[in-house]
Design a protein around this nucleic acid. Structure first.
Lengths: 181, 181
DNA sequence: TATTGTTATACTCTATAACTATA
DNA sequence: TATAGTTATAGAGTATAACAATA
C-alpha cells in the first residue's frame, strides 16, 4: 500500500494556503505517522502490525478459540485463519484441538512465540520512545493524560484500535484512502 | 475494506492482559478513530478523504499542473488522473489547457467546487469539535501545543499527511493492515 | 439445525508499466 | 529525447459466500 497524502495545508509561505489544521487533523497525521513508524520497526522481527496484534492478544489470554479472537479483534474469522496459518508455520502459534468440543481450535503461543514476545515488547518500547522523543517528561505525562481522556471519552477499547477503511468512503469515482482532518 | 484491530490491551479485568498501551499506541488509535470519523462526516458531501484533500489543495493554489499536485500530495500522477476525473464530472474541478505549453492541464475549482469548499470547511470544523468535545478550552490548547510540537519535530508537512501502507509490512503470509503501537 | 473452522471467490484500492500528445 | 497526461494491467489486501466437520 502506498497511500499518501490528501490534505490541507497550514499557512506557510507565499501562495494562499488552506486554513490552519485543527487538532483533529494533527491527530490523524500523527497517528498515521506513528502507525507506519511502528510497522517499519516491527518488520525487523518479520512481523506485520496485524500479526503483532494477534500475538499480543494470544499472549495475554492463551487458549481461546479463533472465533473469540476474531470477535475481540473485530476482524472476520476468515481473516484470522490466514493470519494464524502464517504464524503457525513459523512456530509462533499453535492450534490445539479441544477434546471436549472438537470443532474448537485453542490458539496458544508456540515456543518461538514466547521468545518473540520479549522482542516485541522491546520494539514497542523503542517505538514509544522514538515517537515521544521531542517531549520532556512533563510534557509526556500531560500528553498521555490528554490522549487517555480522549480515548476514554470516545469509547475506544483499551487495547484494540478501531477499524479504518470501509467506514467512511462510500465509493465515489476517484478512490478512498485515508486523509481526514 | 474493513480493517480493524490488531492490538494490545491495557490491563482491565480478570485475565492477564498485555502491558499498558503507550502514548504512541494511543496516538495511532486516536488518529485512526479521527480519520474514520472524518470519512463518515465528509461522506455527507459525497466525498472521500482523498477527494477532499485534493479539493483543498487546489483551492489553496489553483491552476497548478497535475504533476505538481501529485508531487505535493505524494501520490503517483496516475492516481491523480482518476481523482480529477471524478471531481471534474461533478463540476467540482476544471481542467484548463495551458496555451503556452499544451501538455499541461491547469487544475482549477469549478463553480460547484467553490460552493462546496464552504461546506467542507463546515464539516471540518464540526469534526474538530466532535473529536475535541471531551476537553475543555485549556486542555485543547495544551493538546494542540503538544501535538504541534510532535508534528513539527517529526518533520510532518504542515498540511499533508504521510502515507500509510506499503511503508512497513514486508509481506508475510497473513496480511498487513494497520495496527501499530 | 447451529456452530467452528476452512476454502474459494470477488471486490476495492493502489501502484507499475506502456502509450499518446506535445515540446 | 524528454515531459504531461492518460490508459491498461497487475498486485496487495480484505470481505462475502459457499463448504466440511462436529455438535
Amino acid at each position: 500500500m502506498c497511500q499518501a497524502v490528501w490534505s490541507t495545508t497550514v499557512s506557510t509561505s507565499e501562495p494562499p494556503r488552506v486554513p490552519p489544521a485543527g487538532s483533529a487533523f494533527l491527530l490523524t497525521q500523527l497517528g498515521t505517522h506513528a502507525a507506519s513508524a511502528f510497522a517499519e520497526r516491527i518488520a525487523r522481527l518479520d512481523l506485520t502490525p496485524p500479526q503483532t496484534g494477534l500475538l499480543r492478544v494470544v499472549a495475554s489470554e492463551p487458549g481461546r478459540s479463533q472465533q473469540a479472537l476474531a470477535q475481540q479483534l473485530g476482524t472476520p474469522p476468515t481473516r484470522l485463519v490466514a493470519l494464524v496459518d502464517g504464524l503457525e508455520e513459523r512456530g509462533l502459534l499453535e492450534r490445539r484441538r479441544n477434546p471436549g468440543d472438537r470443532r474448537l481450535h485453542a490458539v496458544h503461543l508456540g515456543p518461538a512465540g514466547e521468545k518473540l514476545m520479549g522482542e516485541i515488547r522491546d520494539v514497542a518500547r523503542e517505538h514509544d520512545d522514538a515517537v515521544l522523543a521531542p517531549l520532556d517528561d512533563d510534557e509526556r505525562a500531560r500528553l498521555r493524560e490528554l490522549l487517555g481522556k480522549l480515548a476514554d471519552a470516545h469509547g475506544l477499547t483499551p487495547g484494540v484500535h478501531p477499524g479504518y477503511r470501509h467506514l467512511g468512503a462510500p465509493d465515489a469515482k476517484g478512490a478512498p484512502g485515508d486523509q481526514a482532518s
